[in-house]
Simulated assay, not measured.
Amino acid sequence: MSTPPSMRASASSIGPPSPLQNAIDNGSDEVPGGPLAGIPDLKTYVAETEEEKLAALKLVADGIAQTRQTANRILMFHPVNFGIFLAFIAFVGQYLYKSRGSDLGIVITTSSGLIMAAMVTVRRYTNPYIALAEETHISMLEDSDVLVTKFGDEVIGTVIMGWVDGETKGKRRKWRAEIKGWAVRLRYRGKGEGIALLQEAVNLAKKKDADGISFAPDHANSRRVLWDFYNGPFDKQERKAEAKLEAMWDNNAKTTKSKRR
């Protein structure tokens, strides 16, 4: 795929700095020694250096590996699994209690061993997430724009955007933005950084006159390790993100039309 001319522009061509950098303001109006003194800047922009791009790629890989923790919880606390396991523990405990002369110690020890064995089994079935994380290849960065959010010198969030052929309108060739990877460092999740990054991705796609934006069919978190029966939480989360991205694009388009009037 040839690279669209708009993609050859430098980072400075995508417009003013991200509005995210205003989330923490250490400007000249700040009183020296005040409550925000010493807090690093928060800023979002298109990565310019290989170091920043590789840090973003590593963040995506870390996000895939951390998905294993969610998969562990799903397997352990799924109503069906949890109910069957509790029934099994109760059956074994009752049998041992009656057959070993009401020895409660044996019951507790055996039950603890069964719980540990169950946890090891669960981790065995979610191990493939580690392999998927290790398969995250630098080729993901090819023909892509890498948006990064940095808190000081640390990359805490990223969106990796690829470009594919879109609809051709007349003689003008259009491009469509696809999100290959989207990740926020674990301790910064739940603070709105992920949604803010999606908005920045929409802004960049609009700036480069893209025909639209969506998640790539094979994006970094698209692969499933568990059986379909257990993938409901992952599918729900993905549908929510897709709906949010679509709504952002539509809102951006409406705003643009309003400004032109």
Rank of each mutant, 00 (worst) to 15 (best):
K191F: 15
V31A: 02
V80S: 00
R172V: 15
K171R: 09
K180P: 05
S214H: 06
R172F: 15
Y188M: 09
G170C: 08
A131N: 11
A243C: 02
Y97L: 02
A216I: 12
M140K: 05
E193W: 10
M1Y: 14
E193A: 05
Y129A: 03
T255H: 13
A118S: 13
A220Q: 00
V155I: 10
P32N: 05
A196L: 06
S222P: 04
G181C: 01
K208V: 15
N252E: 15
R261W: 07
A37E: 12
V155T: 15
K98L: 15
D228A: 01
T149K: 02
L20D: 08
A247H: 02
G63R: 02
L141A: 08
L197H: 01
R73D: 09
M161V: 14
D235M: 10
R124H: 12
L104H: 08
T44F: 03
S144L: 03
G33C: 05
E135S: 00
I14H: 11
R124N: 12
S18A: 05
S112K: 13
T149L: 04
V164G: 00
P5A: 00
E178V: 10
P40V: 12
E52N: 01
A133T: 10
D25L: 07
R173Q: 15
N231Q: 12
T67S: 08
T121E: 14
T255F: 13
G101K: 07
S222L: 07
A61R: 00
P233S: 04
S112F: 14
V184L: 00
D145P: 08
R224I: 07
F91Q: 01
Y188Q: 01
D153E: 13
I74Q: 01
R224F: 12
F215I: 15
P19G: 09
L96Y: 07
L204C: 02
S222C: 10
T168F: 06
I160H: 01
K206C: 07
N203V: 05
R185M: 14
P32W: 11
I195D: 11
T149V: 12
P128V: 04
R100C: 12
A9N: 12
V120E: 06
L141V: 06
S18F: 00
V120I: 03
A177H: 08
G166H: 04
A177Q: 03
S144W: 06
P17M: 03
